[in-house]
């Protein structure tokens, strides 16, 4: 990445973080939503058998993907309300800088969501991650799964532009494409939570899969962002 591109990404990311920190509507909304999702799932196990690790990993990724999508939709909608997205598209910056900055800000927002979901699962579901290595694998899975989700969402979020019913279109386009990332995240998390040597090896396999998926998603995003955001 050239220094100029890095500076552009940094500037755009700084702007996104600053705007979000001032408004805080997205932070509060997505964190609250993710807490509600975890809470609702926990109600279904009240008084019954404790949830299995398969259920826990599923709840984790369902909560992250649902609240992440809520935040992403609102984030792009805010750029559209004052037409600032067009101002960015008209600015003399590389389109790839715009894509990478959006990818990073979405990833940050989703990781923030995880900071509510994970403690929620630890508290309400009695989730246990295991020793230090398991935590590292768990966090790597969270990071890579989130990155893959964000790589696809950033591409479609910006490129839907002024399309009608874009709020409906965005999840319809994004969810089918991120199924591999969510599946890998859930299966890998299951492996970590299960905690046997064999399951941890399996988790590493899913991490490798996510690395490949993320690389492909980011490369395709960089490649497609320019034509998808191009002129009307």
């Amino acid at each position: 990445m050239s220094g100029s591109l890095l500076r552009q990404v940094g500037l755009l990311l700084w702007k996104d973080v600053r705007v979000e920190w001032r408004a805080r509507e997205l932070i509060y909304a997505t964190m609250l939503f993710s807490a509600i999702v975890v809470l609702l799932f926990s109600f279904s196990f009240l008084g019954g058998a404790p949830p299995t690790v398969e259920v826990m990993s599923g709840v984790l990724w369902v909560a992250i993907s649902l609240s992440g999508m809520l935040g992403i939709s609102r984030s792009f909608e805010r750029e559209r309300e004052a037409d600032t997205l067009r101002a960015l598209l008209l600015a003399p910056i590389e389109r790839s800088a715009l894509y990478l900055a959006k990818l990073m800000s979405i990833t940050l927002l989703m990781l923030l969501t995880s900071s509510v979901v994970v403690p929620g699962l630890l508290l309400l579901f009695g989730m246990k991650v295991g020793p230090g290595t398991s935590w590292v694998l768990f966090l790597v899975l969270l990071g890579l799964g989130t990155l893959g989700f964000a790589a696809v969402a950033a591409l479609f979020g910006a490129s839907l532009g002024r399309a009608r019913v874009r709020e409906v279109l965005l999840p319809l386009l994004v969810y089918p494409l991120v199924v591999p990332a969510l599946l890998a995240g859930a299966r890998g998390t299951y492996g970590v939570l299960y905690g046997t040597t064999e399951s941890l090896v399996d988790a590493v396999r899913w991490i490798k899969f996510l690395l490949v998926f993320d690389s492909m998603a980011v490369i395709l995003g960089l490649w497609l962002f320019e034509p998808l955001c191009a002129q009307e």
Partner: peptide
């Protein structure tokens, strides 16, 4: 440079 109907400025900044 284009000044359009929308301000194209960030309301929270």
């Amino acid at each position: 440079s284009l000044l359009s109907h929308e301000p194209r400025c960030y309301a929270d900044l």
